[in-house]
Amino acid sequence: MTPMIDMTFQLIAFFMVLMNFGEGEQDERIRLPLSQLAKPPDAANTWPMTLQLTKVGTVLFGGEEMPVAGIRPFLVREAQVLKRMERDPKEATVIIRADAEAKTGEVQELIGICQSREIGFEKFILRAKQGQN
């Protein structure tokens, strides 16, 4: 019995160590572009918010899918929540997970909405997957 229990505990330890709880923001509809410089960040981002852009030009946010222009009210609400918590929206980090085949103009439009006066996000991060083209 003892060897079996030993092995089972080792398997549990293996899976526990390799388990990534931060996968929640990843979506299988998004195929990230590859970059050999894409290394996981050393420090955690302040007030991170992930916006995912599909190749057909829709944004995934908070479990909903909408056109790029439709994200504005959601972001206004996010900015208001931050202000109510006495945080400046400028401190928040917007992480853009855009599909490799998405249009660059749509990515920029999305960033433009985030920057608008009523929202006021300023820090942007473009996410890529580690690998070589």
Partner: peptide
């Protein structure tokens, strides 16, 4: 122990690490 093992096996997913690029956008206004 077996229930824990099954839970970890089922929720295990191999993912490639993701990395970030900081960018500056032309400020509005």
């Amino acid at each position: 122990v077996f229930q824990l093992l099954i839970f970890f096996i089922l929720s295990f997913k191999i993912t490639t690490p993701e990395g970030d690029f900081n960018i500056k956008m032309m400020p509005l206004g």
